[in-house]
Deep mutational scan, measured.
Amino acid sequence: MDLSALRVEEVQNVINAMQKILECPICLELIKEPVSTKCDHIFCKFCMLKLLNQKKGPSQCPLCKNDITKRSLQESTRFSQLVEELLKIICAFQLDTGLEYANSYNFAKKENNSPEHLKDEVSIIQSMGYRNRAKRLLQSEPENPSLQETSLSVQLSNLGTVRTLRTKQRIQPQKTSVYIELGSDSSEDTVNKATYCSVGDQELLQITPQGTRDEISLDSAKKAACEFSETDVTNTEHHQPSNNDLNTTEKRAAERHPEKYQGSSVSNLHVEPCGTNTHASSLQHENSSLLLTKDRMNVEKAEFCNKSKQPGLARSQHNRWAGSKETCNDRRTPSTEKKVDLNADPLCERKEWNKQKLPCSENPRDTEDVPWITLNSSIQKVNEWFSRSDELLGSDDSHDGESESNAKVADVLDVLNEVDEYSGSSEKIDLLASDPHEALICKSERVHSKSVESNIEDKIFGKTYRKKASLPNLSHVTENLIIGAFVTEPQIIQERPLTNKLKRKRRPTSGL
């Protein structure tokens, strides 16, 4: 017993010596996670971090007073192994002897410093981030199933929210409404489509400006004509009531908005009720001829604005009016007729031209339509002016008669200019590109209106002035400009410049 007691005391002394060697000089306990400095002193990692955080910048070693920084600290694995072995020896000594260790306080702390507990403390002390800490805590505590279930439920809930957000973003663009038309193969669909197009076009005519009305009406008319041609002859009974509906809707729209509806009346003529396609083609032919005449008058307007600064050229074209007008009339009417003589009366030419125009518009179905009313009214106005011209010709002399006839021709041009508003800008460009020769010939008609105004002003003063002067240069210039014009009389060319000069002198006297 005595020997055993001596041996136990010796073992205890050895353990105490080893414990003092492996103590931390700051906390005076076994080193936890030993860290060595540049001066080869060993301290606990937790104690050194606490010391360095007390001051900004480098701190001093507690043993040798040298500078220490966080970067200079290094882990010493050898001392950590020695500490672990010492703890194992102490545990074995207690089991063999059955005696508690003399320094129970220190031993209890040593026992608490088992490797499992050290790992837990290291995970908390090290600044490795929240995710690494959570992982280490889960690994160190596998015995708690409640914690695992809560963490898994949190992760699953987070994943569910992310997935639901993604699915919502994908589903939202798919919620856009999609309209699908289910059509049938019955023959009544074509008639319904035609009526739908006509009503939609009328609404567009009321909303859209004048520049786009003609294009819309032309497209709708083409669509309706194609649909009529596709149907068989057996379905004509269905077409006639639908066309009557079209007429009623167009008349109502014309009564409500007459000014807006006139812009599309000329282009919509071939959508009118037709028994066969031949009647629609004839109407299209007549409309094309009318559009040609209207576009020519538009060309004359532009030329008149350009040549208004040259009064000499405008005056020299006075007698070329009849010849150029004959050529335009021959090209406007498709019928083959002989040219009228140069010395014939211009009023007779106008009456013949009106007689040619009237039969074209005397179809029984055309008179029933609303768009032809505008053309009939313009023709009636022309006839009224010609009836007035006959009365004026009986009273005035030959020279005054010529000037009045020219004035009436200008009035006719004004009437025809009203129809110019109905034609589109695209048709003007096509006419100029296809028929430049006709445009040059028809330019002379509009330029002549300037000389007509001068004659009217001469009649106000009650006299006409003449001068025997020749202007050969002007006649040559005008002959080169206009290709299809005829030779003019030299006496009238000489008379016109004198009248304008005298007018300039006598205007201030009349004002006084």
Score class of each variant (00 low, 15 high):
Asp2Asn: 06
Asp2Leu: 03
Leu3Asp: 01
Ala5Thr: 14
Val11Gln: 01
Val11Phe: 14
Val14Arg: 02
Ile15Cys: 03
Met18Asp: 01
Met18Pro: 00
Met18Phe: 01
Gln19His: 10
Lys20His: 03
Ile21Pro: 03
Leu22Thr: 02
Leu22Pro: 00
Pro25Ala: 11
Ile26Val: 07
Ile26Trp: 11
Ile26Lys: 02
Cys27Trp: 02
Glu29Ile: 01
Glu29Lys: 14
Leu30Thr: 13
Leu30Asp: 10
Lys32Leu: 09
Val35Cys: 08
Thr37Val: 06
Thr37Gly: 14
Lys38Gln: 01
Cys39Glu: 00
Cys39Tyr: 00
Asp40Tyr: 01
His41Gly: 02
Ile42Pro: 03
Ile42Phe: 10
Phe43Arg: 01
Cys44Ser: 00
Lys45Cys: 02
Lys45Val: 07
Lys45Leu: 06
Cys47Lys: 02
Cys47Glu: 01
Met48Glu: 01
Lys50Tyr: 02
Leu52Pro: 15
Asn53Trp: 04
Gln54Gly: 11
Gln54Ala: 13
Gln54Ser: 10
Lys55Thr: 08
Lys55Asn: 13
Gly57Pro: 08
Gly57Met: 04
Ser59Cys: 12
Leu63Pro: 04
Lys65Cys: 14
Lys65Arg: 07
Ile68Phe: 05
Thr69Val: 07
Arg71Trp: 12
Ser72Pro: 15
Leu73Gln: 01
Ser76Thr: 01
Ser76Met: 05
Thr77Asp: 02
Glu85Lys: 10
Glu85Asp: 00
Lys88Cys: 08
Lys88Gly: 10
Ile90Val: 10
Ala92Pro: 00
Ala92Thr: 03
Gln94Glu: 11
Leu95Ala: 06
Thr97Lys: 01
Thr97His: 00
Gly98Pro: 00
Gly98Ser: 07
Leu99Arg: 07
Glu100His: 12
Tyr101Gln: 04
Tyr101Trp: 01
Ala102His: 04
Ser104His: 15
Ser104Asn: 08
Tyr105Lys: 02
Asn106Val: 05
Asn106Thr: 12
Phe107His: 13
Lys110Val: 03
Glu111Val: 07
Asn113Leu: 02
Asn113Ala: 06
Ser114Glu: 15
Glu116Gly: 07
Glu116Ser: 14
Glu116Arg: 10
His117Ile: 10
Asp120Trp: 15
Glu121Leu: 03
Glu121Thr: 00
Ser123Cys: 08
Ser123Ala: 02
Ser123Pro: 06
Ile124Lys: 08
Ile124Glu: 12
Gln126Gly: 11
Ser127Lys: 06
Met128Thr: 02
Gly129Asp: 07
Gly129Ser: 10
Tyr130Leu: 04
Arg131Cys: 06
Asn132His: 15
Ala134Trp: 10
Lys135Leu: 10
Lys135Met: 15
Gln139Asn: 07
Ser140Trp: 06
Ser140Glu: 04
Glu143Cys: 03
Glu143Thr: 11
Asn144Gln: 06
Pro145Glu: 07
Pro145Trp: 06
Pro145Asn: 07
Pro145Gly: 10
Ser146Phe: 15
Leu147Met: 04
Gln148Pro: 03
Glu149Pro: 09
Glu149Gln: 04
Thr150Met: 14
Thr150Phe: 14
Ser151Thr: 03
Ser151Asn: 05
Ser151Met: 02
Gln155Lys: 09
Ser157Thr: 06
Asn158Met: 02
Leu159Asn: 04
Leu159Glu: 02
Leu159Gln: 15
Leu159Tyr: 09
Gly160Trp: 13
Thr164Tyr: 03
Leu165Glu: 13
Leu165Pro: 12
Arg166Val: 07
Arg166Cys: 03
Arg166Ser: 04
Arg166Met: 04
Thr167Ser: 06
Thr167Tyr: 05
Thr167Pro: 12
Lys168Asn: 13
Lys168Pro: 13
Lys168Met: 02
Arg170Val: 11
Ile171Met: 04
Ile171His: 14
Ile171Cys: 03
Ile171Trp: 01
Ile171Leu: 09
Gln172Lys: 04
Gln174Phe: 06
Gln174Leu: 09
Lys175Ile: 01
Lys175Phe: 03
Thr176Ile: 05
Ser177Trp: 11
Val178Lys: 02
Val178Cys: 03
Val178Ala: 05
Tyr179Pro: 07
Tyr179Arg: 09
Glu181Lys: 05
Leu182Cys: 04
Leu182Arg: 06
Gly183His: 07
Gly183Glu: 09
Ser184Cys: 05
Ser184Thr: 15
Asp185Gly: 09
Glu188Met: 08
Asp189His: 15
Asp189Lys: 12
Asp189Ala: 09
Val191Tyr: 05
Val191Lys: 11
Val191Glu: 06
Val191Ser: 09
Pro209Ala: 15
His257Val: 04
Lys294Gly: 02
